[in-house]
């Protein structure tokens, strides 16, 4: 589904990603871990098409298409979803209204008829259960005055509504208490299928107790320096990242 080859990206001339290679197949969950500043979130942003990042080398093929050639909205319409680390506030625009615009633009791109208000509402009600989100919250201005947990739940709710093929969760666990973490993870797990894939960007192993990865990759200095299964995450939890840094640094001497 997704093939990343030798991806280099920089921001304002500073290289952040220095040759990422990754293959994600349908049905898989990949965890991207790594110390602060290693490039985890940058990878998520570059995949979603955030314009501040300049791709200097490499390619990304998503479902046979050159992802980097697509505008951010077209990537979304093709099925790439990014759950933001810091969801953005849009005053005066309710989540409902926002999502109705989004869902119908995505549907139009996919050649599906727009959902009318009634149909949209019934789909919404069904998806709301996934993340135990309240209708009242959805009538409020998008993310404005939401608690950390509400924002993250809302992200997963949006994911449910947009039915992506590739979901990228950017530090979705940050700022969540244990109950919210459970609810959010439940939502993600229920949305998993053999046709979709998930990339979980996280700092801590904690989230991976709930969303169990098939593969774990460690990014350091803009490269994937170690890949393994969920046991690698456990090891990282136990020993921290220093041993990986040392390994990498020793190898480069």
């Amino acid at each position: 589904m997704l093939t990343i080859k030798n991806l280099h990206a920089s921001i304002e001339g500073t290289p952040i990603l220095r040759g990422i290679n990754l293959e994600v197949k349908a049905g898989e969950v990949h965890a991207i871990m790594g110390p602060n500043g290693s490039g985890k979130s940058t990878l998520a942003s570059v995949l979603a098409g955030r314009e501040e990042y300049e791709v200097t080398e490499g390619e990304v093929i998503f479902k046979g298409k050159d992802l980097l050639e697509l505008a951010p909205e077209d990537r979304a319409r093709e099925g790439v979803f990014l759950a933001f680390q810091y969801p953005v506030e849009i005053p005066g625009v309710s989540t409902t209204n926002f999502l109705r615009t989004a869902v119908n633009q995505v549907r139009e791109y996919r050649g599906l008829p727009a959902l009318d208000a009634v149909k949209f509402l019934s789909v919404m009600k069904e998806k709301m259960k996934l993340v135990e989100i309240d209708q009242k919250l959805l009538s409020r201005s998008l993310n404005e005055g939401f608690s950390g947990g509400e924002k993250k739940r809302n992200e997963i709710f949006q994911m449910a509504m947009l039915e992506p093929t590739l979901s990228i969760l950017d530090e979705t666990d940050s700022g969540l208490d244990i109950d919210a973490l459970r609810i959010v993870s439940n939502g993600v797990n229920q949305l998993k299928s053999d046709k979709t894939a998930t990339i979980v960007v996280t700092h801590y192993q904690r989230l991976l107790d709930y969303i169990v990865p098939d593969y774990v990759h460690v990014i350091y200095n803009g490269r994937i320096v170690k890949s393994g299964t969920k046991e690698l995450a456990m090891e990282l939890e136990e020993k921290g990242y220093d041993w990986i840094k040392e390994e990498v640094n020793a190898a480069s001497v």
Partner: peptide, 23 residues
């Protein structure tokens, strides 16, 4: 704000309309 809208599949034009009408 625009990137957030784009990431949900909303074109920039419609995103501006949405944000301005919200404002």
């Amino acid at each position: 704000q625009l990137f957030y809208c784009n990431q949900r599949g909303i074109s920039t034009e419609d995103a501006v309309a949405l944000i301005v009408n919200g404002y």
